[in-house]
Simulated scan of single mutants.
Amino acid sequence: MNSTYKVSVNKVFEFDVTEEDILKTDITSNLDTTHHVLLDNTSYHTEIVQSDFNAKQYTIKVNHNTYQVNIADELDARIKEMGFSIGSSKQVNAIKAPMPGLLLDIQVKTGQEVKEDDPLLILEAMKMENIILSPRDGIIKSISATTGDAVDKGQLLIEFE
Score class of each variant (00 low, 15 high):
Lys56Leu: 02
Lys109Leu: 12
Phe53Ile: 13
Leu157Pro: 00
Ile22Asp: 03
Gln91Thr: 12
Ile22Lys: 07
Glu124Arg: 11
Asn65Ser: 13
Glu19Ile: 08
Thr59Met: 00
Phe15Trp: 01
Tyr44Cys: 11
Gly138Trp: 02
Leu39Arg: 13
Lys56Cys: 06
Met1Thr: 13
Lys24Asn: 13
Ile86Met: 12
Asp118His: 06
Lys109Ala: 12
Asp32His: 09
Ser8Tyr: 07
Tyr58Asp: 02
Thr146Glu: 15
Glu20Ala: 13
Leu102Asn: 15
Pro135Ile: 00
Lys11Thr: 03
Ala72Leu: 13
Thr147Leu: 03
Gln107Lys: 15
Lys56Ala: 14
Ser144Arg: 10
Leu123Pro: 02
Gln57Cys: 11
Ala55Ser: 13
Lys24Pro: 02
Glu47Gln: 09
Leu120Thr: 15
Thr34Met: 08
Met99Ser: 08
Asp73Pro: 03
Asn10Lys: 07
Glu113Ala: 15
Met1Tyr: 09
Lys80Ala: 15
Val17Gln: 03
Glu124Asp: 10
Val17Trp: 03
Leu104Trp: 00
Leu31Arg: 08
Gly148Ile: 03
Ala94Tyr: 02
Asn2Ser: 13
Val17Thr: 05
Pro135Arg: 01
Gln112Gly: 05
Tyr5Ile: 02
Leu102Met: 10
Glu20Met: 05
Tyr5Asp: 03
Asn65His: 14
Gln50Trp: 07
Ile79His: 04
